[in-house]
Design a protein around this nucleic acid. Structure first.
Lengths: 126, 126
DNA sequence: AAACATTTTAGAATCGTTATAATATTTTTA
DNA sequence: TAAAAATATTATAACGATTCTAAAATGTTT
């Protein structure tokens, strides 16, 4: 594991902020001003392959990178904002419903964040 | 609702094949040879806004469009292939665990498809 | 230290998608 | 119906995120 790989792993795993590759790059630059974006992508992909980090895709915005620890996400239907949430582990309930061997799962729960709910309410009045 | 919009809606909703925009375009061309890819994107986005169709993102491959009916997806960890599966509705169980109002959810269950399982077994022997 | 493998780099290339601006079509209004 | 306004479609350009490339740098093994 190279120095960059370890640093990127630590950045992503320490944070709960769902950074994009650009954001990881920006943060890493604070420590290593000369590191290139390509290196960030290379190492993010390597870490993904090792399943040491997760990738969260939300259509219409760049992929985000997240710690591997099991947890779920709330996605705001209005603004797309991503928030962590930890529901109980669904694996047993799901596994009981299929013969395929479940490795893991990705659950996004769509809701309206408080700000967007407020906005929607205002528009409803018109 | 325009003619293209209706046709695209019917194509996506009739199929269980998770078509990309390109594939929708190709299929629609069979009926309307002069339709442009931009129109396909425009109408897919309109239908998405109306929640008449769904979009399924799998990182590293183009977005796919899917009928709106509630169902879940199996995603092969090896090849990325997408398969329909219908687990029981999780909304009640999830709603009991949060105060946010759940609109709907997106569940991808990651597994190894038979082909990739076979391939992995072969590689394990080496 | 020579040979080899791996990592990093900068920038070009790629790919999916959206924006643009002109044209065509449909709908509304007079 | 004709004129006006709104909407949809088109071809192509632009864009943004990511990957590829080939060269340079670094690290590892003999």
């Amino acid at each position: 594991m190279t120095d960059y790989e370890r640093r990127i792993y630590e950045l992503v795993n320490a944070s709960h902020s769902h950074m994009t590759a650009e954001e990881v790059h920006k943060q890493l630059r604070a420590e290593c001003p000369s590191v290139s974006l390509a290196t960030v992508y290379n190492n993010l992909n390597k870490l993904l392959g090792l399943k040491l980090i997760r990738r969260v895709s939300v259509p219409g915005s760049p992929d985000r990178y997240d710690r591997a620890a099991r947890h779920d996400h709330l996605v705001c239907s209005g603004c797309g904002r991503l928030t962590d949430i930890c529901f109980s582990d669904l694996t047993p309930a799901l596994q009981a419903q299929t013969d395929e061997e479940i490795l893991y799962y990705d659950l996004k729960v769509i809701y309206l964040c408080p700000e967007c709910r407020q906005k929607a309410k205002g528009e409803g009045k018109r």
